[in-house]
Design a protein around this nucleic acid. Structure first.
Length: 492
RNA sequence: GCCCUGGUAGCUCAAUUGGCAGAGCAGCUGACUCUUAAUCAGCGGGUUAUAGGUUCAAGUCCUAUCCGGGGCACCA
């Protein structure tokens, strides 16, 4: 750093150069600017609760980031922030010793420091830690966002999530809420003696859902692989193996568009319960969502998008056919009626299977009207190949989707355990689909597993990110995923 | 992939019909031992996302590209 030209060409270099110079100044004092172990410090929120007694001041030991700094000659005031909160720290020239005072001159906003001292109030009554000793734990070499207004540029916040977390408490709060949500789901299921398992993310065949997968390759085996698009098929193999109540909370990957409600990788809860069915899954869903609402909102009644949603069981139930008749004026059992209704709502019915028309009408005319929570159940069987049919009507599948504010929150089935029917359905689904449409690959190994005997079961899937959106009242999935997928920055 | 919309100093934002690119915070120098987004005096900081074009003159108008945001499509 002997050459002093070239560092003032841009503002950023100016800021960086100034901080780098301070780093070297700290090193010149014989202090390691990268800190080290600092035991027995307290959370700042706890420090603030210490008793204030000028006769016998409480010792205070804390560590955190410098988020505000006021320098007045022989006294510095810092505001230190840690995961629990903020507190003011006073550094007095006479109180912290010569070396400490020299160090104090070299501090910047954004630095991480540790402080040992006593807790009390200043003359103006501000709760303050009066430092006896100050240590630097890490020098921040880049300038930080505006101390008052923070950052507002969405892209900047997403690309610098660590700064977003540091300077916007809502971001940190939301992240913690998500942690609480997942913890609550685990606890709820563990309490019912579900086994949590981990199944492979790399699959030879993308199964269990209709979605385009990401593809990859294993070098040593020299085989193509895909990233899983659902958890379903491995978990059902575990049902065959005798795990009667089993679940996984895991990341799935779908190579599709990005939107405020879609991230290419997202988190699913899937669970399977032997000897249950989709009715059983309704009850389980009610209990689970009620527990989650209580944990995050403290009430079964939550607001989302200006509407109140009440998760007090039992939730409303309505059949697919009922809703289609009520909102789209179509009779699901009558192809002519479906065609008429489709034409009336601007859908061209030509060449489309009646069930496809029904689904188009449902998506267009019904879904957005569902405030819920409402279990929509008994779907056209052709839409659900892995689902058991109703005993008295093979055209209807024992499936429900839970809708809340037009958003599909949960999806459940009476699982199909008839291997012959399963294979036939696979084949039927494969027929007429383009070769590269990998959403319907025959999975012979799965069918073989069914042949060994899978108990009848209820299966449930819940999109964790969407539930997190609902319970944290956010409208973008990016707000509940810490690192959503972004295009890489162009190298400068 | 298509349509709409945005990108100005490290951060937050201004800039009139096209007419000298500015402020606050942050930074640097100085003053100050109880401040509260400390204050006061002074100083620096810009290829206006990128590349072209129109014009006497472009942050502003046109074209393309890059990266966001919103919508559509696909999907959960």
């Amino acid at each position: 750093m002997s050459g002093d030209d070239g560092v003032t060409e841009t503002g950023e270099n100016n800021h960086e150069a100034a901080r780098l110079a301070k780093l070297h100044a700290i090193e010149a004092l014989g202090i390691d600017p990268w800190g080290g172990r600092f035991d027995n410090h307290m959370a700042i929120a706890r420090v603030r609760e210490l008793p204030v007694n000028p006769e016998a001041p409480s010792p205070a030991r804390l560590a955190g980031r410098v988020v505000l700094r006021r320098v007045m000659g022989n006294v510095h005031f810092l505001h230190l922030q840690d995961a629990s909160g903020r507190v003011q720290v006073m550094l007095g020239k006479k109180q912290i010793g010569e070396l400490g005072w020299k160090l104090a001159q070299e501090l910047d906003l954004g630095d991480l420091v540790a402080v040992d001292g006593t807790f009390g109030n200043t003359k103006t009554g501000e709760p303050t830690v009066f430092a006896r000793e100050i240590l630097i734990q890490a020098k921040s070499l880049l300038p930080h966002p505006d101390k008052h207004s923070g950052m507002s540029d969405t892209e900047f916040r997403l690309r610098h999530r660590y700064l977003d977390l540091t300077y916007h408490s809502e971001t940190m709060e939301r992240a913690k809420q998500r942690v609480l949500l997942v913890r609550t789901m685990r606890r709820h299921l563990d309490d019912q003696e579900f086994l949590e398992v981990e199944t492979p993310t790399l699959h030879a065949i993308a199964g269990g859902a209709a979605a385009r997968p990401f593809t990859t390759h294993h070098n040593a085996l020299d085989i193509p692989l895909v990233l899983r698009i659902a958890l379903e098929l491995p978990l059902k193999r575990l049902l065959v193996g005798g795990m009667e109540k089993v679940y996984e909370i895991g990341r799935v990957f779908r190579n599709e568009g990005i939107s405020p409600r879609h991230n290419p990788e997202f988190t699913m809860l899937e669970l399977y319960q032997a000897y249950s069915d989709y009715r059983g899954m309704m009850e389980l869903t009610e209990g689970l969502l009620h527990a989650c609402a209580m944990a995050l909102r403290g009430s079964p009644k939550v607001t989302y998008g200006g509407a109140e949603v009440d998760f007090t069981p039992p939730f409303e139930r309505a059949t697919y056919a009922e809703l289609l008749a009520r909102h789209a004026g179509a009779d699901m059992a009558d192809p002519a009626s479906l065609e008429q209704a489709a034409a009336k709502h601007g859908i061209n019915p030509a060449g489309k299977h009646p069930d496809v028309l029904a689904q188009l009408l449902f998506e267009q005319e019904v879904e957005h009207r569902l405030i819920g929570p409402v279990f929509v159940h008994d779907y056209p069987a052709s839409l659900c190949p892995l689902t058991r049919r109703k005993r008295d009507n093979p055209a209807i599948a024992e499936r429900f989707e839970l809708f809340v504010r037009g958003m599909e929150l949960a999806n459940a089935y009476s699982e199909l355990n008839d291997p012959v029917l399963q294979e036939a359905t696979f084949r039927q689904q494969l027929a007429g689909l383009p070769e590269d449409d990998s959403m319907a690959r025959m999975d012979d190994d799965f069918v073989r597993a069914l042949r060994h005997g899978m108990p009848p079961a209820g299966g449930l899937g819940i999109g964790v990110d969407r539930l997190a959106m609902l319970l944290t009242e956010t409208t973008s999935i990016r707000d509940v995923i810490l690192f959503p997928l972004l295009r890489p920055e162009r190298p400068s």
